[in-house]
Structures are given as structure tokens and as C-alpha cells.
Simulated scan of single mutants.
Amino acid sequence: MTDQLTAVTRRLPALPDPVLSGLVVVLLLFNALLTLVVEVLFLPLYIGSVPMPISALLAAPINVALVYGMESVTGRLGFAFAPIVVWVFGFLVCASRGPGGDILLGSDGRTLLLLACGVIPPVAYLYYRSNANLFRTR
């Protein structure tokens, strides 16, 4: 039973230096914005005449990896959600009008797919991690 518990709660080794940990946190938050920019720019991708929102589908594993990385560095489950908060803030900025009236994200299904794929999988992962003891079979 204890081996199963340690297998579920085992993460990457903690960084010994708090300055290095803080730098990794800042890089993960910056990476959340950087990946959002790439996802938004490649969202209107077409192959022939067919829209292919591949970047929306890639948002799910990327954001889960960001949350996993943050959880490995901080050790606090609540703070592990910080990259997704930064990602959603950037999403809202991209969805609003710019100074010239330009909008990066249109009002269509691809934008909704990007939002759903960017938020739902990391939330589901954090929900699973916070309730890992409930999902374990005996």
C-alpha cells in the first residue's frame, strides 16, 4: 500500500536552490504565454480548403505538461495551476480588440476548441492529482 502511495505522489526531484526554482517558475509562466501565441497564430491554418485547428489540439498536452512541470517545481497543487491562469489571461487579451480594431481570435468553433483544449485537460489532470487517493483501487 505504501509503495502505491509513493508511486502516485512521486514527482521530479525538487530543486535545492530557491533561486533556481523561481527561475524555472518564471520560465514556465513565460512558456505558457509563448505557446499561446504560437497556438493563436497557427489556429487559422488551412490545408487546401479545409480548416485544420491542429494548434488547438496541441494545446491540451502542452498545458498539461506546463502544469506537471509547475507541480514538480513548487510542490503545491494550488500553485500548479498558475500557467493555465496566465494562458487564459493571454487568451482573453488575444480575443479582445487591439488599438486598430484587430482581433486575433475570431468568433468561431476553432476559438472555442482552443479554449476547451487549453483549459479542460489541465483542470482534469489537477482534479485527478488532488483526488488521487479516491481513484486508487484497493
Rank of each mutant, 00 (worst) to 15 (best):
L105A: 05
L28N: 03
L33T: 12
L114M: 11
A124F: 06
I47S: 10
R138S: 10
R11Q: 12
N63I: 01
G69R: 10
L5C: 05
Y125T: 01
L45E: 07
V50G: 03
L112E: 09
V8I: 15
V50N: 03
L114E: 02
G69Q: 11
P13M: 10
Y68S: 11
I62D: 02
P13G: 06
T2L: 14
S49G: 13
G90Y: 02
M1L: 03
L23C: 09
Q4M: 11
V93K: 11
D108L: 07
L12Q: 13
I84R: 00
P16Q: 06
L33E: 13
V38T: 07
A56E: 00
L126R: 00
F79V: 05
R97D: 06
P99R: 10
D102E: 15
V93F: 03
P99Q: 05
L66A: 02
E39I: 08
L28E: 06
L34M: 08
I120W: 07
V19A: 10
L43I: 08
G109F: 12
Q4L: 13
A14K: 13
P53A: 10
L126F: 00
G78T: 13
S72D: 15
L45C: 02
A7M: 08
M1P: 08
L77Y: 08
L134S: 15
A7L: 11
T35N: 12
V38Q: 06
L20G: 01
L57N: 09
L66I: 09
L77E: 06
P83W: 04
L92H: 09
L12A: 15
V19D: 07
L36W: 07
V88K: 09
Y125R: 02
A82H: 03
L45W: 13
P44G: 04
F89K: 03
F89R: 04
P44D: 11
S107M: 10
V119A: 01
L114N: 01
V85N: 04
G75P: 14
S130V: 05
V85R: 01
L27S: 12
G101L: 03
N133E: 07
N133W: 04
L66Y: 03
R110A: 14
F91S: 04
S49C: 10
D102T: 15
G118I: 00
A124N: 02
C117W: 05
V8C: 01
S55A: 14
V50H: 10
L57R: 06
S55P: 09
N133I: 12
I84N: 00
R10M: 10
L34I: 04
N131F: 13
P16C: 04
V37G: 06
G118S: 03
L41F: 14
A60Y: 00
R138P: 15
S21L: 10
N31P: 02
L29D: 03
F91N: 06
L23G: 08
P121T: 01
L66P: 07
F91Y: 14
D3T: 14
S130P: 01
R11P: 03
L134W: 06
V40R: 04
Y128S: 05
L20P: 01
Y128V: 12
P122V: 05
A59T: 08
D3E: 15
A56C: 07
L41S: 12
R97H: 11
L5G: 04
G101D: 09
